[in-house]
């Protein structure tokens, strides 16, 4: 039993580099079922967090709460969705830590970011399974997620946090950000804006700017041409073409 387990783990560690070797002209597996399942768990919880968060963020968007069962339901479920989101992102981070790590070639890629955005003539370096832009976006989202979780816990249980510590006699507040909850609100809002900015880019890239990307995340497969165009180094590795 034990050696078998060990072997499986080895395979897993290179899972992100691995896709089934496909014959020329066929389709390539880009995301396996597990990766897609985790992605859509993250996506679903994010969507709920986005809608419920926006309802609580702005009076102009409070009407969204009626789609989610009213303001009280929105307030109750938002933090639970946050926990689901954070756990799913954590699993995603562990699974993809290797393909998402920023290597020297990624820093090189970043010098061509503008060229990438404008579909410029200047040759953007070939990218691995994820390009440096995707990686940066991921880490911004993941770090925002961590900040949102930490500040969110303070907002979830505001009475459990005080600068003075638990159990002290409540003193009249001094003006300013004297309650940890206020620091929590500020942090939560700043990182929510960062996170919403990131998701705008991600949704645009995934749904509009890169045809085939959505299908990759739904069906798990991409065409060879797609792989060659967007992730040439990954494509070569998968196909066993030496670099």
């Amino acid at each position: 039993m034990k050696p078998k387990r060990r072997r499986k783990r080895v395979t897993k560690s290179v899972a992100c580099e691995l896709a089934s070797h496909a014959p020329e002209g066929a389709e390539i597996q880009r995301y396996n079922l597990r990766e897609r399942l985790i992605h859509w768990t993250v996506a679903t919880s994010f969507l709920y967090l986005l809608l419920s968060g926006l309802a609580l963020y702005s009076p102009r968007l409070y009407w969204i709460s009626s789609l989610l069962g009213g303001g009280t339901n929105t307030r109750i479920w938002h933090p639970y969705a946050g926990v689901v989101f954070f756990l799913a992102v954590s699993i995603m981070t562990v699974n993809w830590r290797r393909c998402l790590w920023l290597y020297p070639e990624d820093w090189e890629w970043m010098r061509y970011t503008w060229s990438y955005i404008t579909h410029g003539e200047e040759g953007v370096p070939e990218s691995g399974r994820f390009n440096a832009g995707q990686k940066t976006l991921f880490w911004m989202q993941a770090l925002s997620g961590l900040a949102l979780l930490l500040s969110g816990v303070v907002l979830w249980f505001p009475d459990k946090f005080s600068w003075e510590g638990l159990g002290t006699e409540p003193q009249p507040y001094s003006p300013g950000a004297s309650s940890p909850g206020l620091a929590g609100i500020l942090t939560h809002e700043v990182f929510a804006i960062v996170s919403m900015g990131c998701i705008t880019v991600h949704l645009y890239m995934g749904l509009f700017a890169t045809p085939g990307a959505l299908r990759a995340m739904v069906e798990g497969k991409v065409t060879e041409a797609w792989a060659r165009t967007h992730h040439a180094r990954w494509y070569k590795r998968v196909m066993g073409i030496s670099l």
Partner: peptide, 11 residues
């Protein structure tokens, strides 16, 4: 961006 540059089609 979509209007100006459009989607990145496969080569």
């Amino acid at each position: 961006h979509y209007l100006k540059f459009g989607p990145q089609r496969v080569e």
